[in-house]
Design a protein around this nucleic acid. Structure first.
Lengths: 340, 340
DNA sequence: TCGCATTTTGCATACGCTTGCAAAAATGCT
DNA sequence: AGCATTTTTGCAAGCGTATGCAAAATGCGA
């Protein structure tokens, strides 16, 4: 616990140059003669000097920190995304400052305050909704916001999602082709764009064939709610013979109920399809047919867009929609000769 | 994108007081008359002023940021811990700055540099090993380090773990009481203290009864490695009838192999016991008997100790060891009349 | 060698805030 | 009311760095 901070001034003295010379050596764009660079580098190494990012940030107005707002991490999709996001930002010299949010708006408002306090250069929200009011606050503060895996109507907002409507529709086509008679939907939270879009696409896909959903229930993206929904839908004579569940996290819950509470076989009695393709979906215990969201690409887009706005001031908000693909596995009957 | 920063100076002018008065109103310990407080608060609200945490940090030397170093998030234990940690710190006015690390030492060294650049007030490492050299660097910089769920011999290091040795031993007793004949261990990474301690405790527990492990293999805390280990151990005539797996993440992999590749029944043919008790362990698809690590308590301890060192300078390193408890579920035969 | 264009360098200031110090205001006491 | 004490206030210095500006150093061609 020595606590001895070594500053650019210390390095300057030891190298026999001015403090500004030291600063220039550590500032990418600046000019310094080879001789000075050498002297400064040497002195800096000997003293173990590294520039103070915060002091630098005070002047440049850039902290190289990105605020990430997340509501929960129990859905495996988010830790995976977080890991990739954090790594990608790290490679480009940024770091993630975490903010856990409840879903209450008031809570989020509080968090936006804190984000601004820390002078983050940009904000990524995941599994969280921003109100227009909050977006405005960030806007006037000049901080770009990007919504990851969630959309919002406000055209000033940037977002990166998969094409949830198309994904839902494709699931409908797939289940119809499989010859299912009673097709139900345990939907994602209808307060979220993903939940609504997937449901709408799914219903549209059924409608394309002149069909309707046997039942639609909101599973709230919660394991418990999804289990309740499954019980409600399946514990009766006219139970569905196929169900599209709004994300994998809920789909696992539904499968657990079907198999272990109701003794149904998958896909014998019921076909189950999810959304996300989290790693667990590929494990044989679930072997879940699901729509893959290409997380790597989503993260790459997120980083590119956000940093473009930060670094080049490229200010146009973007709504980026990446296609998803249906992963065929064992939890749903595969139609004869089915090709995507 | 207005970018209009409002500073304490702006507030001061509007409230008709000095800049220092504004500062005092926003500094917990400082003194200001009720009248001034009122004027300043009013002006601040009207302008939407909030103190700049970074500028404050430059003076106080405290950034209210805790660096978190993690190697991977695919083992569910870590996202859960991260969520709790982040929330707990948030409640006490701190925030988590994320650093993803590969396991290479050189990589970690790089990360320590960056941690120091950001002037974090403290560091938590999880699923990552620090070398003594790195610890020293943080020490001289006056930044307390706390290892979460990983120990190290260096007495200067603080750590929070469960009693892995005791946990391993209890599993041994449990499996012995269950009358198993050939008890194997797919161990956690032997480069980590948790991996070693659990294995050692387990072997000690067997030895207590004059028994030996039927086989011990290192599963590296990796899904793929654990699957290979399972194949190697079980795809032969004298296969084990019980296996203790070094953590839940690997245990799921092992169960998948046993059931879906080798067609074995659990616990009919083989009893499986894990370590951690991640949420997934309680889902009926796995229903895994496992040693619970009380994450909430671990996190609470972590936060308490770390902030104590930061805020009160309480400098004594601590090795905190919390007891775990065996959660009885369906993946392992339960001995008649077994009580913990 | 000298003059000119170009780099490199140091000085000084600023970023937004906290805090020691001394002056000013408020308070309590006789 | 008058004085001693306490509280509140403003001033100014500083935290560690970046950067515009002018002065010094360098390079180049003739």
């Amino acid at each position: 616990m020595a606590g001895e901070k070594v500053t650019s001034m210390d390095v300057a003295r030891r190298a026999g140059v001015s403090q500004s010379a030291v600063s220039r050596v550590f500032t990418p764009g600046a000019s310094a003669s080879p001789k000075t660079v050498a002297k400064v580098r040497k002195a800096a190494d000997e003293l173990g000097y590294r520039p103070n990012v915060l002091a630098r940030g005070l002047i440049t107005g850039k902290t190289r920190m990105i605020g990430l707002v997340v509501a929960y991490l129990d859905n495996q999709f988010y830790p995976v995304a977080l890991e990739l996001l954090s790594k990608a930002l790290q490679e480009r010299g940024y770091h993630v400052l975490m903010f856990m949010a409840g879903n209450a708006t008031e809570d989020i408002s509080h968090i936006v305050d804190e984000l601004l306090d820390y002078q983050v250069d940009g904000i990524v929200t995941a599994s969280v909704a921003m109100t227009n009011d909050l977006t405005a606050r960030c806007d006037t503060a000049g901080i770009p916001v990007l919504m990851f895996n969630r959309g919002q109507d406000d055209p000033r907002l940037s977002e990166v999602t998969t094409d949830n409507f198309a994904g839902g529709r494709q699931v409908a086509r797939f289940l119809l082709a499989g010859g299912h008679a009673r097709i139900a939907h345990i939907a994602g939270w209808q307060g979220s764009s993903t939940g609504r879009d997937r449901a709408a696409g799914f219903l549209a896909g059924l409608a394309d064939a002149g069909r309707e959903a046997h039942a639609v229930v909101d599973g709230m993206y919660h394991r418990d709610a999804a289990m309740d929904a499954a019980r409600q839908l399946f514990d009766r004579p006219d139970r569905p013979d196929a169900v599209f569940v709004g994300n994998d996290h809920m789909a696992f819950a539904v499968m657990d109920v079907l198999r272990h509470e109701l003794g149904l076989s998958i896909p014998g009695d019921v076909s189950v399809v999810g959304y996300d393709d989290v790693p667990l979906a590929a494990w044989p215990a679930y072997d879940l047919t699901t729509v893959r969201q290409p997380v790597r690409r989503m993260v790459a887009e997120t980083v590119d867009r956000l940093l473009a706005r930060i670094e080049t001031g490229d200010t146009a908000p973007a709504k980026i929609r990446i296609p998803g693909t249906l992963m065929l596995r064992g939890s749903a009957r595969i139609p004869q000769g089915w090709t995507q």
